[in-house]
């Protein structure tokens, strides 16, 4: 029997957290949620998720960016795949660099614009976890 994977969702929209949790739980994952970057960093001290879904605009317009950079620096989360899920299509308006230390460095594995369909998100998670 394969071990149940845990997904951590970080988003400041309670309704979105609720909807996505149902979808992922029904797709066989264990789900943990956080409403802010601060709460996420605290939660990561006591758990190690297999994948993180992250919103961009939370406490500030860029707190998702800052959080994902911070997580890639932390030894316990640096290898955890991150899906950046956002209402802003930043990938079209900003150019990102994959080089650490670069100002436009955005170390995410996948970038999906909101609104996203449940099937698309589940498919993306499966693809990243199978890597």
């Amino acid at each position: 029997m394969t071990e149940q994977k845990t997904i951590l969702i970080v988003d400041d929209d309670k309704d979105f957290l609720e909807a996505t949790s149902i979808v992922l739980e029904k797709s066989g994952y264990s789900v943990a949620t956080c409403l802010s970057a601060k709460e996420c960093l605290a939660k990561l001290k006591s758990m190690k998720p297999d994948l993180i879904i992250l919103d961009v605009m939370m406490e500030t317009d860029h707190s998702g960016f800052d959080l994902c950079r911070e997580m890639k620096r932390l030894p316990e989360t640096k290898d955890v795949p991150i899906i950046m899920l956002t209402a802003v299509d930043q990938k079209y308006s900003l150019s990102f660099s994959s080089a650490a230390g670069d100002e436009s460095w955005l170390p995410v594995d996948e970038f999906i614009g909101k609104p996203v369909e449940a099937g698309v998100l589940v498919e993306c998670i499966e693809k990243l976890l199978a890597r």
């Binding site: 929209d13 309704d15 909807a19 909101k114 996203v116 449940a118 998100l121």
Partner: peptide, 12 residues
């Protein structure tokens, strides 16, 4: 953002 949760629910 609001449409995000609607889309997630309905598409599921």
């Amino acid at each position: 953002g609001t449409l995000g949760s609607v889309m997630m629910n309905i598409s599921a």
